[in-house]
């Protein structure tokens, strides 16, 4: 199992957001997490990635190692990637020098040699093409002056550059029009492989038409209440969370 979460609880400023999440994602699989606003989806992704500021308990194992106490940069260097719902802007920090530092940190960590400037540039050109990110954007400061869609494509570009073992996509579809969505999803699909797992967090079934999940989990009020195959996503879309939850309560 690449990612194994057991009884994960997280609260912030005394308010409990995650109330005992259990989740297992085997290597090579794509799992989707769906849920209404405020159910704890973004908190779940932040906590897996190691964001500071949460009181947590429970266990997060990544490739067999307990990572709950690890700093976010160590998780990242081990191959955990989070595509942010709201990517930040870094004024004056060039995207290529930023990424070069990040890629080399990861490479050093896993015992690979650092990339020199020319092989790094070649890699950038190759990966930028995956999500049709123009060379002009690569030369700019990170996300500065990027449109919403460009920021999201930039996240997937960075994912491709960092070559993670596990990628969490936090509402990567939000704010994207249908063409941008297709470009992003195709980029992600090209990055699927038997070693890499994806956790796709989304509000809508729409993204899952492009990035087809192996499993779908429903997160409501800080806990996973239901899991199923991709048809569960369709049912949610059709009936809404409340009805699905009601049916589930009846059946249990």
């Amino acid at each position: 199992m690449l990612l194994e979460i057991e009884n994960l609880r997280a609260s912030i400023e005394g308010k409990e957001i995650l109330k005992g999440v259990n989740l297992s994602v085997p290597a090579g699989e794509v799992h989707a997490i769906m849920g209404p606003n405020g159910s704890g989806k973004s908190t779940l992704s932040s906590v897996i990635a190691g964001k500071d500021g949460y009181e947590t308990s429970g266990s997060i194992r990544f490739d067999g190692q307990e990572i709950s106490d690890w700093e976010p940069e160590i998780r990242a260097r081990e191959g955990m990637f989070l595509a942010f719902q709201y990517p930040v802007e870094l004024p004056g920090v060039g995207l290529s020098s930023f990424l070069r530092a990040c890629v080399n940190e990861r490479r050093k960590h896993i015992g690979q040699s650092e990339l020199d400037a020319s092989s790094f540039l070649a890699l950038m050109r190759e990966k930028a093409a995956l999500v049709e990110l123009s060379q002009d954007l690569i030369r700019r400061p990170v996300n500065q002056g990027f449109s919403g869609g460009e920021k999201k494509r930039n996240e997937i570009f960075q994912m491709a550059m960092l070559d993670p073992r596990m990628a969490i996509l936090d509402e990567t579809d939000s704010g994207l029009d249908i063409d941008a969505l297709r470009i992003v999803a195709e980029g992600v699909n090209k990055l699927r492989n038997p070693q890499r797992s994806l956790l796709v967090i989304t509000h809508y079934q729409r993204l899952l038409e492009y990035i087809v999940p192996d499993r779908v989990h429903v997160l409501i009020d800080g806990a996973i209440v239901m899991s199923g195959d991709r048809t569960l996503a369709l049912a949610l879309e059709e009936k809404g969370y409340d009805l699905v939850r009601a049916e589930q309560e009846v059946s249990s």
Binding site: A49, D52, E73, R75, A76, G92, V93, V103, E105
Partner: peptide, 26 residues
């Protein structure tokens, strides 16, 4: 902001080099 630092550390930079990079960008 903490969000900016988290973004950088999530990409593999230490907090310290993230701050150095942000300050230099600034």
């Amino acid at each position: 902001a903490e969000d900016i630092l988290f973004y950088c550390t999530q990409r593999g930079l230490s907090r310290e080099s993230a701050i150095a990079m942000i300050v230099n960008g600034y």
